[in-house]
Design a protein around this nucleic acid. Structure first.
Lengths: 241, 241
DNA sequence: TCAACTTGTCTAATAAAATAGACAACATGG
DNA sequence: CCATGTTGTCTATTTTATTAGACAAGTTGA
C-alpha cells in the first residue's frame, strides 16, 4: 500500500489504511480493548507518513471503532461483525436476538406509487399497478444496522402503511391481515458504496460499503407478499445463508 | 456529490462519479449500446468539472464498461451482473452455465500448512493439524470472476493438490476419492475492498468492491470436506440464495 | 457545405493529500 | 525523579486532485 497507488485507485491513502485496520477489527483479528501498534510503527508498516496514519486513526475514532489516548496509544473499542441469518424464515428481530440488547424498527416514510418493472416482476403484478412503499431503518442497541425499502401490492394490503406505522413490525402487520406465517422465497445479494442518503440514515463514514439484499417474501402457498430492498453496513454485518 | 465531500470520504470525486455511472450500468438501468449523456451534461449533473468527468469515463473505459468515440459520445459496452446461485448443491461451472460461454478454473498455487483456528473450526479438526491449501481463479469467457482459497484436511485427502492440478475441478477431484456427491452446509457473506493481490488476479480497477463468501462443503452424512473463501467482484456478480 | 454538437488536448491556477521535521504534552516503569 | 516511549500540534514543502478556459478534431443532419 503505497501513496503512489492513490491516483490509480481514486481512494486516499489514509482511507485505505483506515479500511485495513477496521477490517482486522471487525474481522475479529483484533479484540476489543487490545492496543494497536504505535503510530510510528503503523506508518512503517503501511509505508506512509505518521501524519497520514494519524488521519486514518482519527477517522476510525470518529466512527467509534477505536479510542486514542495521549501518551498511551490507540485501543480497539468495538466488537466484531454481527451475523444476519438468511433462510426460509427470515425475521429481523428474531435474527439479531442474542447478538444485541434492544432491537427496533423505525418507519421513515411511506407513499403510494406505481410499480416499476422490477417491483412488478417481484410481486407478480402488472407494471404500473399501485403499490405501497415503506422506507425503514432498523437498529440494534440504537446503532442503525439496516436501511430497507419495502413494496407491497396496494390492492392486497390497502392500509398497510397505517397499520405498520402503529406497530412497525412486518410480521405483526401481516398478521393483522390474517397471515399467520410467511416465508422467504428468494434473496439476491450484491455490494456497493453507500450513497448520501444511506450514509446519513445509517450513520456511516462517507464511502462505506453496503451489503444489498433484494428479497421476496411469500405466503405459505407461494404467492408473493412483499419485495424488500435492504442495505446493511458491510463493516458491521455479515449475511449467513 | 460535490468536490468538497472528498476530504470527508477519502474517495476522489472522479471515482465516485465512475462508481455512480457503473452502478447504473451493471444494475441494468443503462442497456448495452445505449449512449451516455455528454461530458458537459454529466459534469453539470454531478456538479463537477468536465475534466473530472473525463477521468471517470477514462476509468470506466479501462475497465471495459463503456467505450468512447470522438465526436459521438460514450456508449455502454458491457452486460449487467451475472448471478451466482447459492444452495445445497453449489457448483461453480454448473452455476454459470447459460450465462457465459466458456467457464474455466485455474490453480495459482497449492501448499501444505497448519490449520488456524478458523479453518480448524470449519473442517471440524484440531488447530495446527495439516491442511492442503489451494489458491484458484475461476473465469467466464476469459474474464476472472472468482478468486478462491480452499482448505482440505491433509490426512483425509493426501494428494488432493496433485489430482486437482491435473483436472482443476473440485467436483471431479472429490469424485476421484470416491465421493460421488457433496453439499453446501453453510455460507457466510460479507463485503470489502479488494487488496493488491485480488486486484491483480481478478483484473480489477484498484479500489473495487468484493463480495466475500466463506463456505463449508460436507459429504452427504454432514462431515466437513472443505472450507472455501471465495471473492467475487461486486460489479460483475451478485449472489442468489 | 455548413452550423451545431460531440470528444481530445493543451495551459494555467487553486485546493487538498501526503511527506518531512521539530517539539510539546502525557504515561509508564524503574 | 527521570529516561523512554507514546500521542498532540505546529510549520513547511512536494505531489496530486480539481477547477477553469480555450481551441482542435471528429460526427451529424439540415
Amino acid at each position: 500500500m503505497s501513496a503512489s497507488d492513490s491516483h490509480l485507485s481514486g481512494v486516499a491513502l489514509w482511507r485505505r489504511i483506515a479500511d485495513a485496520i477496521r477490517l482486522d477489527i471487525v474481522g475479529g483479528k483484533r479484540l476489543p480493548g487490545e492496543r494497536l501498534p504505535g503510530e510510528t510503527e503503523l506508518a512503517e508498516r503501511f509505508s506512509a507518513n505518521r501524519h497520514t496514519v494519524r488521519r486514518a486513526l482519527a477517522a476510525l475514532q470518529a466512527e467509534g471503532v477505536i479510542r486514542t489516548e495521549q501518551g498511551r496509544g490507540s485501543f480497539v473499542d468495538q466488537a466484531r461483525r454481527v451475523s444476519y441469518r438468511i433462510g426460509k424464515r427470515t425475521r429481523f428481530s428474531e435474527n439479531l436476538a442474542g447478538q444485541a440488547g434492544t432491537i427496533s424498527r423505525h418507519m421513515l416514510s411511506s407513499r403510494l406509487e406505481n410499480a416499476n418493472a422490477n417491483v412488478a416482476a417481484a410481486l407478480g403484478i402488472r407494471a404500473g399497478n399501485k403499490v405501497t412503499r415503506l422506507e425503514t431503518v432498523s437498529s440494534a442497541d440504537n446503532r442503525p444496522m439496516s436501511r430497507a425499502s419495502i413494496w407491497l401490492s396496494y390492492v392486497a394490503f390497502p392500509d398497510f402503511a397505517t397499520r405498520f406505522a402503529e406497530n412497525p413490525s412486518i410480521t405483526a402487520t401481516l398478521a393483522s391481515y390474517g397471515l399467520a406465517d410467511y416465508a422467504r422465497a428468494s434473496t439476491r445479494i450484491s455490494a456497493r458504496h453507500a450513497d448520501a442518503d444511506e450514509t446519513a440514515t445509517l450513520k456511516l463514514a462517507p464511502g462505506a460499503i453496503l451489503l444489498v439484499s433484494e428479497a421476496v417474501d411469500t405466503d405459505l402457498a407461494g404467492k408473493p407478499l412483499l419485495y424488500a430492498l435492504s442495505r446493511f453496513p458491510a463493516d458491521l454485518m455479515e449475511l449467513v445463508v
